[in-house]
Design a protein around this nucleic acid. Structure first.
Lengths: 253, 253
DNA sequence: CGATTCCTTGAGACAGCTCAATTTCGGTGG
DNA sequence: CCACCGAAATTGAGCTGTCTCAAGGAATCG
């Protein structure tokens, strides 16, 4: 059930080559040479999931690995009593799955419609051994994720609710700027990919507290809301001031 | 200053070969063949730090990477106002530093006397390219650390103080058992490598709350204390019950 | 055995949680 | 285009777990 990808629409990317792939230069294949790309092209296949669908349950067998091509997905831990903590926010080019692991350690959920570029796990494991460029890129991506996780730990362990929200918005703003190839700063508008509840699961808060803090930032003019999901940041620098510090300090260093 | 390793005593391990190294089969060199070990042997050198010494400050230049041979070290983030969150607990065989990164992202501190087996960064980076066995092991270790960080995020974000303490003790017990090659379970005794304050920094609590929760577990007979640092766990299963669940569930699966 | 560091315990304050209405947004069908 | 509906978000009031501030007590080291 969990692995049953729903075909939403015929996918142009399935036909077109890796060369035109939107995540070509950020994903696990970023370092690949043209002939290596040809090999990948043989092995890859796309899967589609609707917003809200569970891609994999924690503990389920996972016979593929892959990259997010479009959309947003989350990794999360759930306790027996229902408490939930998000542990990964997967944007386009992020990698799902672990070579050498048969069972998923997390619940993986599509929060928007999602397209994955997948490889069956076994062939991909061979690929890693035979293609140093893939292994090297995967190591680098994993170390980036580890750093992000550790920054996140600082937020979870030591920041106030207000600082958590400010930090989260700043992270999104920075990622959005990077994705668009701009430098973050000044005035920006971001689209929240997550509901208040999902933000709460990200930040270790309740959805009510998230809502209250967002309202507070709004009332103080640090942000403006357009609908529920659109956030205007008139001055990113001022928002960063509210994060309590951390890596974000270097944002404008 | 930060990189000035203090020589405590002449070190036998400096003379003896990698073959006799206590972390030979867990560390980054675990997969190396005998001839590869010879190469490493040429490059490696040992450093010693006293308990309490800072090995590297966040932002400092780090011209080496290395493995913990003896002792315990921590990685931590510190905010401008002094709030601190530990983000890594490094035991023997754990790796310090990131290939390709010139500056340290964390404060690295020796909490006991520590011996590191080091490589200068540049040669090590070449080593990774030329020795797939090292690269592969490093990837695997990094992914293990990422999983540990994500488990830790669940603890930080969603668990109560009592559950945090129980989780922490359970993690230590499991690691200790693994290091001794035993299966965790039944009655165990562990040595806390950390002060109450360091435990608080690990768990995102204050030292007073840590102390109170440890006292509570003691008064309920879930643990016994021998001195400040020795903890008797009469029945690990019962302690696991108090962790609130998570990965620890599978401990006896 | 004295000193220092670490730990424990207490009392009061407060941030964030819980429970409970409303309100707003965004989509859907008339 | 408008009225309606359900999901998501907001806001309020009271509670509770953890923090803060403060005082004393134990372990470890010279």
């Amino acid at each position: 059930m969990a692995n049953t990808a729903k075909i939403l629409v015929p996918d142009a990317a399935d036909q077109s080559g890796c060369v035109d792939c939107p995540i070509r230069h950020q994903s696990v294949c970023a370092f690949c040479l043209p002939d290596e790309l040809d090999t990948l092209e043989q092995l890859k296949y796309h899967r589609h999931y609707e917003a809200g669908q569970t891609i994999i349950w924690a503990g389920d067998e996972m016979n593929f690995v892959g990259s997010v091509v479009n959309g947003v997905a989350t990794l999360s831990h759930t306790l027996a009593d229902g408490r939930k903590q998000m542990v990964g926010l997967l944007l386009p080019s992020d990698f799902i799955g672990r070579p050498g692991r048969r069972l998923s350690s997390y619940d993986v959920t599509a929060v928007t419609d999602v397209t994955l570029c997948c490889f069956r796990r076994k062939p991909f494991e061979q690929l890693i051994s035979s293609t140093p460029n893939v292994a090297e890129r995967l190591l680098d991506m994993s170390l980036d994720e580890l750093e992000a996780a550790r920054e996140w730990m600082l937020i979870l362990g030591r920041k106030s609710a207000r600082e958590k929200i400010a930090s989260f918005l700043t992270i999104l703003a920075r990622r959005a700027a990077k994705a668009e190839g701009k430098a973050p700063g000044g005035a920006m508008t971001i689209d929240l990919p997550l509901t208040r509840e999902a933000m709460a699961d990200y930040l270790g808060l309740t959805l009510e507290t998230v809502s209250r803090q967002i309202s507070a930032l709004k009332n103080e003019g640090l942000i403006r809301l357009g609908g529920k999901r659109r956030v205007d940041i008139p001055d990113l620098r001022r928002l960063v001031t509210e994060t309590g510090g951390g890596t974000d300090d270097d944002l404008f260093a």
